[in-house]
Amino acid sequence: MSAEIAVVSTFANDGDCARGIEALHGAHVHDFSAYGPFPSEKVLEATQEVRGQGHRHSPVRWFVLLGGIIGFITAVVLTVGTSLEWNLNTGGRPVASIPPYVPIMFELMILIGGISGVLGFFLMSRLPVFEPEPGYRSRFGSDKFGLVVRCQENEAQKFETLLWDAGAEEVQREAA
């Protein structure tokens, strides 16, 4: 049995990187990591395309929805609850008047939904990562895009050819 290794490919731009992702997808390889110095729509679209082929969408959206609902309910309890508790009559209006509470309900819904989304993102992305993953290069954070494929050593040659054909500037092997 051959050892598991990482095939590290470097791309000059996001278009080539996206082509690399599509090529890996074409070869039915889904266990890889993509790195880039900035968020790229092309890379995102290529990954979504891969996900769309029988792979699940990001679950972060459910964190946002749940946080939004919790935020809204919290605001209703906070505003209506405190009004009923103190029972102040302001200008003859109902004690629990909804119009002035709408901005609070809206803002808390957005706030908790947003915070929950960020936490969900960290949780699902397994962040923070203090030790770089095998195959990561510091240039992936400055001026290059990268794809790291984890595979058995005897399969590496096939992926290297795929990545070269997709436009990689450099392809290297590394222990996983």
Partner: peptide, 9 residues
């Protein structure tokens, strides 16, 4: 607009 009118009454 509505909120300001509601508040002022």
């Amino acid at each position: 607009q509505y909120l300001v009118i509601w508040y002022g009454d």
